[in-house]
């Protein structure tokens, strides 16, 4: 039960303002999700480099001196940029899996929020505006971003229970609603080798999408397939390296509104989230249809 915002920029001149616009959008959704907040930002790519976003309950202890052992383990130079409780580790492209393995074995108390060429995911417990400001969301740049404010339903209010959930390299998913068959689906996915960090229903949806994509489906196909296998109420917003997708369940009770101009595609749980966007008065504003996959790519 939550608020969702998303902004997918089509006109590169708006990219420097991505964080500022997303931060304003996120702030309007505080009441819908006062427990925790998070956001995925698709920033500029650095040629030959990938990044892994980490979170630590004790960042002073964990992030100091982290780069040396990781560099040694993967045999390549890495660097770390700390942002509050999170750190973005820059590793050579092609060394992501090795770095993740080194983190998993050598630094198991660090949580991996995301990895990919451009994605960074930040999420924490707390009031959404405070979460956004501790990570300086308003200063971030990039091509697209997805933000989420959470009102926890049946799982704990924790950092890992906050959205977005990363679903694979440069992929993320956020959810508003409540799934009703996630326990069974979780067991099936675990049987097929997927692993979980939380009891959250949304993580099951995220893992389901990853699982389908591992089978060779593209994101749009995986979303389409989820309509057959997920039960309950949901609005999903998903991100990929170049893409941005939206899906509502067939009943479509949870609110969703979208806007599109020549400059951007935007998503909000309510119109309030879109009210501050440039040119919104002239934008095409509509509500996504139930059981219909929407997907933009650039």
């Amino acid at each position: 039960m939550c608020g969702i915002v998303g902004l997918f920029i089509k006109d590169a001149s708006l990219e420097p303002k991505l964080g500022q616009l997303t931060s304003t959008m996120l702030a309007t959704m505080c009441e819908r999700g006062p427990d925790s907040a998070g956001f995925a930002v698709y920033g500029p790519a650095t040629k030959g480099r990938a990044k892994i976003t980490l979170q630590s309950p004790d960042p002073d202890r964990d992030f100091a001196g982290l780069t040396a052992p990781i560099s040694k383990a993967i045999g390549a130079e890495v660097s770390l940029e700390r942002k509050s409780t999170h750190g973005v580790l820059s590793v050579p492209a092609g060394k992501v899996d090795a770095a993740r393995e080194a983190l998993r074995t050598g630094h198991p108390h660090l949580r991996i929020m995301s990895s990919g060429d451009v994605i960074e995911i930040f999420k924490e417990v707390g009031y959404p505006t405070q979460v956004a400001s501790r990570f300086d969301l308003s200063k971030m740049q990039g091509s697209h971003a997805i933000g989420h404010t959470r009102m926890a339903t049946e799982s704990a209010v924790t950092t890992m229970g906050a959205h977005p959930f990363s679903t694979g390299p440069d992929q993320c998913l956020v959810h508003n609603g409540s799934l009703s068959n996630h326990h069974n689906l979780r067991r099936d996915l675990i049987h097929d080798g997927m692993s979980f960090e939380t009891e959250n229903d949304t993580e099951v949806a995220a893992a389901y999408i990853s699982w389908r994509m591992k089978q060779g489906l593209n994101l749009g196909e995986a979303l389409q397939k989820s309509l057959e296998d997920l039960d309950g109420f949901f609005t999903f917003v998903v991100g990929t390296k170049n893409g941005f997708g939206v899906l509502r369940d067939p009943i479509a009770c949870k609110p969703a509104v979208m806007a599109e101009t020549n400059q951007y595609v935007a998503f909000g749980s309510e119109y309030r989230a879109l009210a501050g966007l440039p040119g919104i008065d002239a934008a095409r504003v509509w509500e996504p249809e139930p059981a219909t996959v929407y997907f933009w790519e650039r």
Partner: peptide
Amino acid sequence: CRHPDWTGPDDLEI
């Protein structure tokens, strides 16, 4: 079984 004009606690708040 559901209210006609809201679903879920986030809508109930409104």
